[in-house]
Design a protein around this nucleic acid. Structure first.
Lengths: 111, 111
DNA sequence: AGGATAAATAACACTCTCGTTATTTAACCT
DNA sequence: AGGTTAAATAACGAGAGTGTTATTTATCCT
């Protein structure tokens, strides 16, 4: 299928899953458990969309599926947004610098 | 309604409208004329979504509506994507630098 | 082998989205 | 006033997206 990344992130639940995975790998069951208002199959289907859009990877481990974030999948999106940066007013440049600095700091930390 | 920005950009037609407006202000009719496969009402409703999501502004001029891009509307999206930057592998840092440089160069040009 | 566990898929209902055509609203121009 | 133009809205139908419960698939464990 190779679902569109723009579509994949349009759903709040799927964004929440991505945010969760930003904190590290998770088993499918642990992800599903985080969403109290949704059933296991519902979350499973969201994971399928994220898989097909290339935003997450799966590793099979016995009965479990370990999901990991694939940040490279966001490259297209980032490139698309970046196109508009030049049009942003100066006030937003400050935000950009702030975020860049934060990202850089985080990257330097020992893992 | 204040539609969600993530939802607004999930539609290819709406992204095409934004890309068009990145080139400057356009009358509603001129925008609609660009989409040969769509009718005027269809485009009008896409414009409504973009309006409600804060991604475009409208100026009334007699019977015409002049649409302009509101790049600040993309701030939330940019912030969201930027969160993941720190997780990107080094290969993507190059892309980031490239885009930053390009945006900076464009910003410096006389208007 | 047989039961338990983990997660995906099947089948179905409901809603939302997107398209259409027809109409309305509003301002312009003789 | 009356007609024209520009764009939004109304009403409706088709298809897609998301949720549910029930079931299947696959692996583990005794």
């Amino acid at each position: 299928m190779t679902t569109d990344v723009f579509f994949a992130i349009s759903d709040p639940t799927r964004r929440a899953v991505l945010d969760l995975l930003a904190g590290g790998a998770r088993k499918a069951g642990d992800i599903a458990a985080k969403f109290l208002d949704l059933t296991q199959p519902a979350v499973s289907r969201h994971l399928k969309v994220l898989r097909e859009s290339g935003l997450v990877n799966v590793e099979v481990n016995a009965q479990q599926r370990i999901y990991t974030l694939n940040p490279e999948g966001l490259a297209d999106l980032y490139e698309w947004v970046a196109k508009y940066q030049a049009l942003w007013p100066e006030t937003l440049d400050a935000l950009e610098r702030y975020l860049d600095a934060k990202a850089r700091a985080k990257r330097k930390r020992p893992r």
